[in-house]
Amino acid sequence: MRYAMAIDTRKCVGCSDCVVACQTENDVPIGFCRDWVTETVDGTYPNVSIELRSERCNHCDNSPCVRCCPTGASHFEDGGIVLVTHNKCIGCGACIQSCPYEARYSHPDGYVDKCTFCIHRVRKGENPACVSVCPTKCMYFGDLDDPNSEIVNVLKNRKFKALSPEAGTKPNIFYLT
C-alpha cells in the first residue's frame, strides 16, 4: 500500500477550502496551517499563465524528517504516511529544518505537527478532509499499488510533476499540469 495524492493544477481555483477543511478537521491552532495554496504567474501580459497549487507534507518515501528524528517520533505508518507521535517528540526542531517543503511547524503545545493525510479518516475508508471538500474535485487520493484506483488512472493519463524532486526525497504528492 502506498498512499499518494494527485492535484489537478488546471482545475484548482485557489479557493483555500482545503486549508480551512484541514484546520477544522484537525483542530489546527489559529495562525498555523498544515496545507496552503501557492500561486505562480508566468509570462508577460497578455501571454500569462497561472498555476495554483494546494501544498502540504509530501509523505516522502525517502523522508529526511524520519531520518533525522532523534527519538523516532517521526515515523512511517502503513501506506507510507509520515506521522509524528506527540508524546515521543521532544521539539528539537531537526525535522522542521530537514523538510525542503517546510511542511512542518512547531505546535504551541510543544510538539511538531504536520499533515497526517487525515489518517483517522483514511483508516475508515474515507478521503482526507481537504480532498473531500474540494469544490472543483481537483484532488485525488488513493493507493498507488492498486491499479484500478482513480489516482493511478489519472497519473497514467495526465502529465504530472512533483515538487523539488532534486531534493531526493521521493515525494508522494503529484501535480497534474
Binding site: G31, T38, Y105
Partner: peptide, 12 residues
C-alpha cells in the same frame, strides 16, 4: 516575468 505568491501562514 515570474511571480510567485508563496504562502503566508502568520506563525510559520
Amino acid at each position: 516575468e515570474l511571480f510567485v505568491s508563496g504562502r503566508n501562514i502568520p506563525n510559520i
